[in-house]
Design a protein around this nucleic acid. Sequence first.
RNA 1: UGGGGGAUAGUUUAACGGUAGAACUUCCGGCUCUGGACCGGACGGCCCAGGUUCGAAUCCUGGUCCCCCAGCCA
Length: 563
Amino acid sequence: MSGTEAEERSGDFIRDIIRADLDAGRAGSVVTRFPPEPNGYLHIGHAKSICLNFGVAEEFGGRCHLRFDDTNPTREEHEFIASIQDDVRWLGFDWGDHLYFASDNFETLYGWAEHLISEAKAYVDDLSQDEIRKHRGTLTEPGRNSPYRERAVEKNLDLFRRMRAGEFADGARVLRAKIDMASGNINLRDPVIYRILHAEHPRTGNAWCIYPTYDFAHGQSDAIEGVTHSLCTLEFEDHRPLYDWLIDNLPVPARPRQYEFARLNLFYTVLSKRILTGLVAGGQVGGWDDPRMPTISGLRRRGVPAAAIRDFVKRIGISKSDNTVEVALLDHCIREGLNKTAERRLGVLRPLKVVIENYDEGAEEELDAINNPEDAAAGTRTVPFSREIYIERDDFMEDPPKKFFRLAPGREVRLRYAYFITCTDVIKDDAGVVTELRCTYDPATRGGNAPDGRKVRGTLHWVSAAHGVEAEVRLFDHLFTRPDPGAEGDIVDDINPESLTVLKRCRLEPALADARPGETLQFERQGYFCLDPDSSPDKLVFNRTVALRDSWAKIKAKGAGKG
RNA sequence: UGGGGGAUAGUUUAACGGUAGAACUUCCGGCUCUGGACCGGACGGCCCAGGUUCGAAUCCUGGUCCCCCAGCCA
């Protein structure tokens, strides 16, 4: 096998299976599907599934469907149907004409349920929910047959039709597949396949008052659509025998196969739709698209490009072992993409005023700045400079430790794209807080280089006081304080009270007033930022997507306590 | 104690009986008009015990640990 062949052969076990099926002729082409239930917003865990399903379809020349598994009208909404489509599209995937809803199959599924009844493979059970539970047995004890299990086919058919007709109240009866109450696999202990729900469905309205369960809808919908490889997460492994049983016992037009892979977990993050829904409902976050949320819409609002999410998913791989990925990998993927594409700007988050005493009062000039050192095609822009500027508070220390290369009394540093300045005086308020610095500049260093060849260790970003625009900047940290939120006690107690930091009165270079929504920019030496939808022309609001790697912070942290 | 899965560096993931490799993280160094980026280097792993084999992460046996399942959720 040559090197390139070896590369083609490499991949995850799912791709291995598909390749083998294709090679052996078990499948003529590949059809996959992404099957969300429209009861919440998509998150980065879904992105893994989306990239897998759409990815393999594309790689093997097949197609991937978007199918809503909308079988439970009590918790599904139009809002979610719309947001899910937006998010999948935004991630960069296209289902073409292949948009489906399990609810489109309700009539067919109903017919198949009657078919099962006719074959004496399903029966209407009058037991209450509680009684059914008691009959089900436990993990270690077999279940007991329902007293209604041997009802005559005609009686079952009659009752099931009357269930559909709305003669019974919610929960009064269910339709169950007749399989094996003694099975070690609880899913095979006569699973409920239809239940009575007098609820309005987002798509079928009030046409139905009985709805198929997931198990009765999923595999059959796969078969109807011609799905060849039905990829889902590990918790459905136990359902595969039921999936197969239904396919085997129903006159379905195709024979799909289910394969399971491990879902994504992220440290310091929750990827449970139930819990995310709770955070939104409980007001712990601002909504599904709160930038601290692991939702696709939250990541988008934070400024994370779709390409970074795709890259991340590619890097974490696909396997069957439980896994929890470090947030650092996601951050890395975000930075790596943005480093190549994001334009640079100057923005001061925590301003400290600097007066350059030997610079003419009232004078100003435009200095050239490079938009993206990683991309010459991004060109240059000019940045206004004047006598009074702002620098970052963290870039000055009155009594600096050894490895601090930034501004300090008597020290010379470079202002990015501007001049060398030297700190000559420190002004403080009554409380001893530094309020202003007095500096001098060297006119010969215009642009940032000294003709005499002298070097400085530090380069600071800055914004002209007279020209800069004011903005609010929002910084985000992990939503939870512990790597395994909710592992002990109430998860709400694990919410990080400092997950959101709002900085008012930040000073940004004037070009930032023209930032476009959806565009992520780098504030030099700080990180990547994007305009938040809360922004307006008279009140700019930026979100920090991710900070730049900060080796000074590490040095500082290490030195802390050591003097 | 039933059934179904899984164990390879700190994290994620390769290997398909033939030299355990990568990425991220961490650390060290270089370079730099971003303490960014980039470049170079280092640390670090096959769950355990037997067995088969010239050779085992891989095959066999027996353990151990972890995850999932008792919704009329998906």
